[in-house]
Design a protein around this nucleic acid. Structure first.
Lengths: 239, 239
DNA sequence: TGGGTCAAAACGTGATCACAAATATATTGC
DNA sequence: GCAATATATTTGTGATCACGTTTTGACCCA
């Protein structure tokens, strides 16, 4: 019997190159989760917007199960919240919550940025590569600002930060910060939309320059100022 | 027609006292989640222990759906992790992760404790009530230490901290800290079990005294020292 | 025109089934 | 005895249904 046995998908051999298995398992509920997560962090969903299991499922062209699981995860992370009648909506913002999130961001994000330099110690090539990548994102960001495209602004702003943060290889910190962005993302979009993007001074260039120079103090200050600027801009609009 | 219409469960009227509706909706998957969450935070599940949807469902006497949803949430919070073959297990600890968690705890928990005093400003009665409650938990904790009961130690230690933290009325901070405890809980239990509880100096009494005295500096220091002590004890055992 | 009523639609939740993949157990061959 | 193979069991995942509740929207009457 020369039956070809199915190769266990996760056997150590499954990743040998040439074996043509580039296709990852492709778990549906994970893809739904990732898409929704990105949409929320980058401010594509307005606060208070209600979601439903069936609605999401239809939108993504999947059945209800994966949509349920994705929603559950985002509820656990504080991105979505349940009304008193168990309906799901994008989390709303209020003054207390905003001040908590801002303070927590200040407590975590500069440190997370600092960890990037620790991680890339004596790897100036890797730092340079990351700096270039970040500059490109920041340039796209600038163009979004010029044309007053607040949706694109929110998107590339989050992309800039997380591209940097991911380089820290600090999954715990990253998870905490992601949770904060999931909670503030929808609100940021609204604020930027109301305020316009013109008054935003760009701390990102400072951060990139600090990254190139391997200057921890400068980098943490840039991130700190970036957060503070966002806060004062928000404070200028009424919460 | 004197038909008795069913009272909408969440109508504003539904909570009027005397209307006999003390029975909350009782969502099964939420109860499973809470039980499992508590078990993990208080160190009742060892790292690496595998769970299964059907196994959990059987253990709690429910169907698979609520178990699935509870697991999803705890995966999102980093308490459970997926193996490469998508099986679920209690998250393992490693040195890097431990140092991240410890640092994040130092960044968040003292501040969260400080917020308790902000919240209870000029409410010495409320502070005293909380102090009494915490003292009771701490006394139970001492008895657990005396008889070397590391399971009870882990449980009442988490109870002490969260009873304090909940009084801060800072849901965002609380969520972040909960996520950290969910990740470190199983490992703490192991460490305490290996080490015994005898060498643990009790910073809790300092914290309670600071709470009574409305002394922010002393309170944050007590929490900080409590975390640091735990870390050095862990460092003394090999990770 | 505006508020109250009621039927219809949409919703969250729990239950159960099917299927392929992964793990555990039994069996075989040497 | 012991590794290799084959069988059986367990597992995560997606799909679908049923039930009671909530929300919506049309309608009516004042």
């Amino acid at each position: 019997m020369t039956e070809v046995k199915t190769l266990p998908r996760h056997s150590p051999l499954a990743n040998v190159k040439g074996v043509a298995n580039d296709a990852r398992p492709k778990i549906v509920h994970e893809e739904v989760y990732q898409k929704l997560r990105r949409a929320i962090i980058s401010g594509q969903l307005e606060p208070g917007r209600t979601l439903s299991v069936r609605g999401l499922a239809a939108e993504f062209g999947v059945s209800t199960m994966p949509a349920r699981e994705a929603i559950r995860q985002l509820v656990a992370l504080g991105a979505l919240e349940l009304t008193e009648t168990r309906r799901v909506s994008v989390a709303q913002m209020n003054e207390d919550k905003l001040s908590e999130i801002s303070e927590a961001r200040l407590a975590l994000e500069p440190e997370l940025a600092a960890r990037v330099l620790t991680q890339l110690k004596r790897q100036s090539a890797a730092r340079e590569k990351l700096a270039i990548k970040l500059s490109k994102i920041d340039a796209t960001l600038d163009r979004a600002i010029e044309r007053g495209d607040s949706a694109a602004y929110a998107r590339y702003n989050s992309e800039f930060h997380f591209k940097l943060y991911e380089a820290a290889k600090s999954p715990v910190y990253l998870g905490l910060v992601e949770s904060l962005w999931l909670q503030i993302g929808p609100f940021m979009r609204v604020v930027i939309g109301r305020l316009g993007t013109s008054s935003l001074v760009d701390q990102h260039k400072e951060a990139v320059s600090a990254l190139r120079a391997d200057d921890v103090t400068k980098l943490t200050k840039a991130i700190r100022n970036d957060i503070l600027e966002g806060m004062t801009n928000i404070a200028r609009t009424d919460v």
